[in-house]
């Protein structure tokens, strides 16, 4: 029963990881842009959710607003700064986005202080169900259901709509997409904002589970990179499978060997990269 319990935990965690990482992966696929500020968007989403709840906004409103505000901030940063450096070497991407991440983190510390806080789950979901004799919070069940619906919608957008086809096309040749009459700058901004908004949403969803603290972004960034590397840069399905894999491995390891839980995900990454250098579903 403990394994079922940890499996459920792992799936919940894994879906959050997917949400966190899918933006990073799609942004890399389309823009070939290495975004070390991705974790900071997750951090910002979590804190915005926390702050909005404190201002008396309802949980659902806080969730949606946090994601939208993060997406809007990302859009501004992309148009004002990042789009100017896409053409440069990855080194510049890394330096600029680490700088951005640190700025966001410092702003969070200035506004909300260096000490973390807990965030209450919404009233409707404070109950729990029994899995054998383990107590499983309803909120986590909600997170699994909510992210699953979101994953399905995202998949449909990416695979079933014209916009999704243009985004996939853009990951192959931005010139050709322009030659068909699409403004690639606007598509880039939209995709960047969407990816950041999803990271922000993941942060907001995670807040009631793990609380908020100013360093959660750094941790999230590491996990997101592990997921993207395992799943394959630019792959939606890869991010989903790898997110779940990482979440489940981490949860099961918490039971088997708690000290090694974080280590295990890096070992999994190394193993995957050794066998399949492009990740499970990566392409050249």
């Amino acid at each position: 029963m403990i394994y079922l319990f940890q499996l459920m935990n792992g799936i919940g965690l894994g879906m959050l990881y997917f949400l966190l990482a899918v933006g990073l992966s799609v942004i890399f696929g389309l823009l070939h842009f290495v975004n070390f500020a991705h974790g900071a968007f997750y951090l910002l989403g979590a804190y915005l959710c926390y702050a909005l709840l404190q201002y008396g906004v309802g949980f659902w409103g806080a969730l949606v607003l946090a994601a939208i505000i993060v997406a809007a901030i990302a859009a501004v940063v992309e148009t004002g700064l990042l789009k100017r450096i896409y053409r440069l070497d990855h080194m510049y991407h890394i330096v600029a986005t680490i700088g951005l991440a640190l700025m966001i983190q410092e702003i969070v510390i200035i506004v909300w202080g260096p000490v973390g806080s807990s965030v209450p789950a919404p009233k409707a979901l404070t109950g729990a169900i029994m899995l054998g004799h383990f107590i499983y919070p309803e909120y986590r069940l909600f997170v699994i259901g909510f992210t699953a619906v979101l994953a399905a919608i995202l998949w449909w957008v990416l695979e079933g709509t014209r916009l999704g086809a243009v985004v996939r096309a853009g990951s192959e040749s931005t010139d050709m997409v322009s030659l068909l009459g699409y403004d690639i700058n606007r598509i880039n901004t939209a995709v960047f904002a969407l990816g950041a908004g999803l990271a922000g949403l993941a942060g907001a969803l995670a807040a009631p589970i793990r609380g908020v603290d100013p360093f959660m972004g750094v941790e999230a960034l590491a996990v997101a990179f592990v997921v993207v590397v395992i799943g394959g840069m630019g792959s939606y399905t890869g991010a989903l499978i790898a997110g779940l894999l990482v979440g489940i491995v981490q949860s099961l390891m918490t039971t088997l060997w708690p000290a090694g839980a974080s280590l295990a995900i890096y070992i999994a990454m190394v193993l995957v990269v050794l066998v399949m250098p492009r990740g499970l579903l990566g392409r050249a």
């Binding site: 096309a169 040749s173 010139d175 322009s178 030659l179 009459g181 690639i184």
Partner: peptide, 24 residues
Amino acid sequence: ARAHAIARSGLALVPEDRGIFGLL
């Protein structure tokens, strides 16, 4: 003018490499 604006005004290029999207 930018490429997408030129394309929208009705000028089409079939490029040397054909520009087929292999993933689509």
